[in-house]
Design a protein around this nucleic acid. Sequence first.
DNA 1: TTGTCAACTGTCAGCGACTGTCACTAGCCT
DNA 2: AGGCTAGTGACAGTCGCTGACAGTTGACAA
Lengths: 208, 208
Amino acid sequence: METLRERKKRRTREALVRAALELFTTQGYERTTVDEIAEAVDVSQRTFFRYFAGKEDAAFAVQEMTEAHFVAAVRARPPHEPPMEALRQAVLEGWDDIRETVESVVPVELYLRMYRMIESTPALLAAHLRRSAATEQTIAGLLAEREGVDVDADPRPRLAVAVFAGVIRVTERQWSTGDDFSLAAIRGLTAAYLDQVGPALTGNWRAA
Amino acid sequence: METLRERKKRRTREALVRAALELFTTQGYERTTVDEIAEAVDVSQRTFFRYFAGKEDAAFAVQEMTEAHFVAAVRARPPHEPPMEALRQAVLEGWDDIRETVESVVPVELYLRMYRMIESTPALLAAHLRRSAATEQTIAGLLAEREGVDVDADPRPRLAVAVFAGVIRVTERQWSTGDDFSLAAIRGLTAAYLDQVGPALTGNWRAA
DNA sequence: TTGTCAACTGTCAGCGACTGTCACTAGCCT
DNA sequence: AGGCTAGTGACAGTCGCTGACAGTTGACAA
């Protein structure tokens, strides 16, 4: 069972995340200082840095949970599914699950606002892309294992994941700049865009 | 013609770039301070920041030239070429041209070392990915124009570019972690990986 | 050629992110 | 109850970066 000390720690951490996201999404990321976040939770700046490696870390605390969920979702896919189909299903079916997990820490609405803030803040976008690249590595490893090929010898796992991730990026961007921020919207976009990959690669587009 | 002032400016800037890349590649990016770079060229720290928006900017000074070249190469492709073919040719044929341009500022060997440093330094990798994302936007616009479609209404331009960029990323990574750093090597990898996209997307991989 | 103007530059001062150190408090465990 | 230790606060210091101001030097006209 959870000791008092651990409980306090978890509370402090979650309070810091909530305060950080709230401040980031209202004043902007750069204009929010670590001191402000610490003060909002009534701890010292030094303590903030004991919970997070940096300001950036706090900003991605929730994203980290969703990434872990996606990886788990891919891992849970039936082994007979072709690679791209497994990725597709994992991302489409994962959202409801993710929603619940997120809600246990911060309001989903705050999570969505933060998502947009990441997309529109260069420093955060850069960090997001780097983190995505790391996740891609993990997924590539999973696919290789599923299909029984060697990740380093066979380029197909990494290529498939890179292509998939590229589509997801376009989807994210479109969703975050649109005006419908519902989960249904991003699911619809994801499915539609994945279906458009084939047409986008073949021939020229004037014929259609 | 170039005035004395402009000549001095250009020399200072190029000296700063060379000093920066030299220091970054030998001591590492984080362990190199702006003061060191400025001191190596015998200017004040303040002057460094008048030439570059930040330490990061200096690190990507050369990359910026190659990106501009790639965009120009795509723009120069015959309009009848299908989109993906235009990108492929632009990247494969662009290298020799780029090599010359790079050489006019820093030794190619230093450029290659810097490339690897970027791939292996999280902060630089993040910046690199963000910059790539920006370039992707530009290319997507070009493709849309070529094909006479609307970038915002038709997802295909962005999807095609995202897929292409994903493949290039995998190629870059493979090249920078391998042991053959020649231009021929990266050209070969690029062609091979682009050809592998189709197979990577369809069916499962065990059959092959 | 010379004087004026604008462009560059150096110096100084300061902010914010981040780190090391050290003393201290508060939960844990016997 | 009392020792042990994880967690914290306070303080000082480094580094990236910016603003303000003053000095210098090249450009260009008279």
